[in-house]
Design a protein around this nucleic acid. Structure first.
Lengths: 343, 343
DNA sequence: TTGTAAGCGTTATCAA
DNA sequence: TTGATAACGCTTACAA
């Protein structure tokens, strides 16, 4: 038999639908003990639970939160997803996931689809390049929280790693380990805010440290997904050239790039740590087992997701505040790839 | 301003709501050219799109498919998710994801929540241990497709890797490479169907090959997440003991276990391939870069997800057929970890 | 404190 | 071919 409706419960308990609805929404506030008990009994014998679609239609609120991620296969996104999910669940919301599959042109579609399903707000881990779809929905009164990636045209709560600090931490670690010719490797920076921030923080670190640390020098390199392998290999060889007697060290801006660097070093027969130092953003379960162990900067991904969701839920509860910016610190995980010579 | 409703469109076009609805659902089948044009114009000027909640309420169908995964942080689940998503999108369905976070007791909650949102069917990548919640919903007429994990009490379409074949492939590869003392390492097998299938396929392979291959011997080991590190280390040392002069080789049943094995070997100072051969289920982006490269058995994850979704959608379209079982072949990715001595 | 009735945005049934 | 009108399952004035 089909799901029980509020009418079934009302009939079973010998009361009106309104009474059942009151029991559900205001619990015992307005109800006689006896009636409440009868309703409760009816609900449990019919194992009734309200139809959220109908509720959404009537209330205009769906208890749904839209989560749009640029790419679910990015472990970072998944980690954020998990954190957000937990927070949403606790607050009685359900996450609706829309994965862009790295096609940023679909962002508008995602937001419109989710809007159609009456999501009450958005958590976005996207580029924001699809004609300000997010901005629009913010104007329509749906709160938005940005995670990890800023939208340049948008004022909204923003939750992210403290990139500047993390870069400084990674670079300083390399320097303290003895590496002097630094290279920052990232995917193409263009319009992707964390990449921009990391790159410029890297440059800032260099110009700040040139005075105090002798022989320190650095440069940056952008590696594309579909480039010929030789490009990155060349860059590494140049790096060793310019290093001369000094030790070269690489700071890579995410796990994918880190793997590309490792691959290139493998091709060239270069040893991690010994020939070139390496520190990479994003600590993964496999980081300890690549080569002598990869030194990484771990992001508090769970917290990022949780806090993003909490921010959104606060807004949904009516919190009025100028857009907040919440930056969380990363944690350095030193391993063999940033140790100059084998023990 | 708020979303346009069908009433707004009707007013704008100077027709009734029914006419607009007809335009939407039966297109031009029943409509005068002129009227159709007016409705079309009104729809586009108001940029109207129907409210799926209202549609769901009225039709009893939501265009939603529920996907329940045991653990999103498992890359396998994510890959399936991506495949399923693509297929659903093409068929005009939206996926609602529910992540169990490895707590199989929440499966019932997941199914009930999704049912409340009127999902039309389920794709389950779960244990099915939560009191046959899935079975129930199947009885309520919601089609279910199982991916990777069987529910012993359930007859439903099932999509999975051909585990028996994959195990044979992995074991044979080790044997052909010269390893003779084989160990199958998996997480606790209890009631997790792919683990059971892989383990028993391993044992079957052994008993079938003992006759033809001299000196071949094998055993199995179950490694728990929270066990002391020493347990697995011991197992490896035992393995080398019993191997004697022969080469020991390990077949590990998923990526997590593979990393545990690698960790244990690292602790013991054993070299991958040279001291112990290793082939692991699940090919990951990092597999090539751990040690001399990890030999793996790649699953066609995208296909698994896509086919699962397609099966479900066929059922939703009314296909009546006894439960199907669709097994896809894995692919061996040989790398350094199954090469006995360094080149 | 409880019930009646209207309405959320659709679709489906009936007349016209 | 088109238009009223009644549902779908729920919430919420307003009445009682």
């Amino acid at each position: 038999m089909a799901r029980a409706t509020i009418a079934d419960v009302a009939r079973q308990a010998g009361v009106s639908k309104a009474t059942v609805s009151r029991f559900l929404n205001h619990r015992d506030k307005l109800l006689t003990k006896g009636i409440a008990a009868r309703v409760e009994a009816a609900i449990s014998t019919l194992s009734y639970s309200p139809n959220p679609m109908a509720q959404a239609l009537k209330r205009g609120r769906s208890r749904l939160i839209g989560l749009v991620v640029a790419d679910v296969s990015n472990p970072f996104s998944v980690a954020v997803l998990r954190g957000a999910e937990k927070a949403c669940q606790q607050a009685g919301y359900l996450l609706m996931l829309f994965n862009l599959g790295n096609d940023s042109r679909r962002e508008r579609e995602a937001i419109e689809t989710l809007t159609a399903y009456q999501v009450e707000g958005f958590i976005l881990n996207t580029l924001g390049q699809d004609g300000g779809a997010a901005v629009e929905s913010a104007r329509h009164g749906k709160p938005v929280v940005l995670v990890d990636r800023r939208h340049h045209d948008m004022r909204a709560d923003f939750v992210s790693l403290d990139n500047a600090d993390a870069v400084r931490m990674g670079a300083r670690h390399l320097v303290e380990a003895g590496y002097r010719e630094l290279l920052f490797v990232s995917e193409p920076v263009k319009d992707v805010s964390p990449r921009e921030e990391r790159k410029s923080a890297f440059c800032r670190y260099l110009s700040e440290s040139e005075n105090t640390i002798t022989n320190l020098h650095g440069s940056t390199f952008e590696s594309m997904a579909d480039e010929p392998e030789a490009r990155l290999s060349n860059a590494l060889q140049c790096l060793r050239q310019s290093a001369g007697e000094r030790l070269p060290g690489i700071l890579s801006s995410n796990a994918v790039v880190t793997l590309r660097v490792v691959a290139a070093m493998t091709r060239l027969g270069l040893r991690l740590g010994t020939d070139i130092g390496l520190v990479g953003f994003d600590d993964t379960e496999w980081s300890p087992y690549v080569g002598p162990g990869l030194s990484t900067i771990a992001q508090p991904t769970d917290d990022l997701g949780r806090i993003a969701a909490d921010c959104l839920i606060e807004r949904l509860k009516g919190l009025e505040l100028p857009p907040r910016q919440i930056l969380l610190s990363g944690r350095l995980m030193p391993r063999g790839s940033s140790v100059p010579s084998p023990a």
